[in-house]
Write a protein that binds this DNA or RNA. Structure first.
Lengths: 230, 230
DNA sequence: ATAAGGCCGTGCATTAAGTCACGGCCGGAT
DNA sequence: ATCCGGCCGTGACTTAATGCACGGCCTTAT
């Protein structure tokens, strides 16, 4: 099936979920893998499509979103290199619940259900790896539910800005980075309207906590931002 | 470890997750199972406690809730007979993310991580069962995220009331049932304040869609309730 | 250059939901 | 029976967040 099984297994090896597999295992998975190169804007699948395998991003960016009949959408996750999606729905043999759209030109690996199931039968270690992966996802999703249900918009934004800041001691530290996606997409991910998100960033900036220039954000004082209260 | 391994395996057999296991497998799991009888009000574990196994409800009712430092809480799930919880956190070897409180006198089976892991190594079929279980949970949780982020309070209530109504044809059908828990708990589960929930039920009732008497709810016309629009 | 389109910020009006306060009711314990 | 305490309903008010409208700006392609 694959045009170049060798490169498929090379990509697979570098994905967190498939790390620590031995070469034989990777080879078997690679045989059930298809490489999908897709430019920004491509819809990989829509809510309701049949699911017959899982997906992993080698490079690029994919947006997973819930959609409503009347055109509304809520971004559930933004998947970057090394990330995977669609496992749950593959195990359940149900149609996709979300729609996947490529945001930045991507190489997505598609691993068939048959290959995954065969490998589970072959290797308990692999099964545990998949279990850990799903558990991880579940854990993060409950974090989202928590943010959605008992935090304010501003708290969610602060939480996001500090997502990978070490919980370091006192003393004003400054960190600068670029948002990985357009603000509109991020707003939806954080369950805010574009307008509301814009206002929140503005407010945090005029409180002297952050500095925003286009997509670059400088956190002026990490501990003070972390200590933000309504 | 168990006082009566025979009854443990009897209970296990009747849980959806462990159904279809052969007697030998059940026996092995039962050996790693502890029966916990707990009256209403018991806290089984709190957010932050160490997790070393999973839990399954034989009878009774358990509430899983997120808690905030300042005493707030959001009910994530109400687990009844046959339901299980704590798997994800067990696989990740992380502390519990939610707090579990017994709502109605319960028998909860606690299965140690060791027993689960051993059985995964023993049986790929069991591994697939666990994968399906976690996938199921993930699926439902995304449903919650969807309800939380793109539905109004009333829509969530309507969705809940219709949760297990067959999507049958036209013609006014009537269904009556009792809420499984106190309205305050249900309100939190649906991410509403008690007051808001109360008003919503009132409004639906005065629109002639439902009839509420204490904990009993009669849906007067299922299709019309389903067709409810803001 | 310049045009065209997507993305973003902001003022104003509106609304869904939350908060506070109070009073009634129901069910279990004495 | 009667008392008590938890659970629930409701009115008045506040607030966080949304929706709409518009205008600027910064790409990207021509």
């Amino acid at each position: 099936m694959p045009a170049s099984p060798i490169s498929a297994s090379d990509f697979l090896r570098n994905l967190p979920i498939f790390r620590e597999l031995d070469p034989a295992q990777l080879e078997r998975l690679a045989a059930g893998t298809r490489e999908v190169r897709a430019p920004a804007g491509t819809i990989l699948f829509r809510r309701g499509d049949l699911a017959t395998g899982m997906h992993a991003v080698a490079y690029g960016q994919v947006k997973l979103a819930l959609t409503t009949p009347d055109g509304g959408e809520k971004v559930v996750e933004i998947v970057g290199p090394g990330g995977s999606f669609g496992e749950a729905v593959m195990f359940l043999e149900k149609p996709y619940y979300v729609t996947a759209e490529v945001l930045a030109d991507a190489l997505v690996l598609y691993v068939s259900r048959a290959a995954i199931f065969a490998e589970i039968d072959e290797s308990p270690q692999f099964a545990r790896r998949m279990l850990a992966g799903l558990s991880m996802r579940l854990h993060r999703l409950i974090g989202d539910v928590e943010a959605l249900s008992l935090k304010s918009g501003t708290e969610r934004v602060v939480g996001y800005l500090l997502r990978d800041c070490p919980d370091s001691g006192p003393g004003a530290q400054t960190i600068e980075f670029r948002l990985p996606v357009a603000k509109g997409v991020l707003a939806s991910r954080l369950n805010l309207t574009r307008e509301h998100f814009s206002r929140i960033l503005h407010d945090l900036a005029s409180a002297g906590l952050i500095r925003v220039v286009g997509r670059s954000i400088r956190i002026i004082d990490v501990p003070r931002l972390r200590a933000w209260r309504p």
